[in-house]
């Protein structure tokens, strides 16, 4: 697998969530993703960006265009240096929230993308990587 291009953008304030959605949309269009897949990926990005901001205290997003043979896709890596998630399984459960949300962000995002990886160390931060491939 090959990373064709990458870009890094900040997730520091509420306007950055809008920016993340728009930038991610551009990358999905660039690989020729269909409308439904693109909408799923942009929505997933919005969910994780908000978590990064709200719970992680802000962080950064790295966007990568992937190439695997003739397959093309987009990978998003969100990283923060916030408090981390003590119990990932519980956080992934639909309906669990430590705040005022609906607890759908993580579980829902996993259903929207092709690959979902989460790693978190309490006291150090959280990293969420999601990948969506262009359907052929």
């Amino acid at each position: 697998m090959l990373t064709a291009r990458t870009e890094r953008i900040a997730v520091r304030g509420p306007h950055d969530i809008v920016n993340v959605r728009q930038v991610v949309r551009g990358w999905c269009l660039a690989v020729g993703m269909g409308l439904v897949d693109l909408t799923k990926m942009v929505t997933a990005a919005s969910e994780i960006a908000r978590n990064t901001l709200e719970y992680g205290g802000g962080g950064a997003l790295t966007i990568e265009e992937l190439r695997d043979g003739v397959r093309q896709g987009v990978r998003l890596i969100f990283e923060d240096q916030g408090p981390g998630i003590p119990d990932i399984d519980r956080a992934m459960t639909d309906g669990y929230t430590s705040g005022t949300g609906m607890g759908l962000g993580l579980g829902g995002t996993k259903r929207l993308v092709d690959q979902f990886d989460i790693a978190s160390t309490p006291g150090q931060g959280t990293r969420v990587a999601i990948t969506k491939w262009k359907a052929r």
């Binding site: 439904v36 909408t39 639909d94 609906m102 759908l104 579980g107 259903r111």
Partner: peptide
């Protein structure tokens, strides 16, 4: 609501 948006919301669980 657009079809792609509706499909996505359902998948999200909303």
């Amino acid at each position: 609501m657009q079809p792609a948006v509706a499909i996505t919301l359902v998948e999200l669980g909303l």
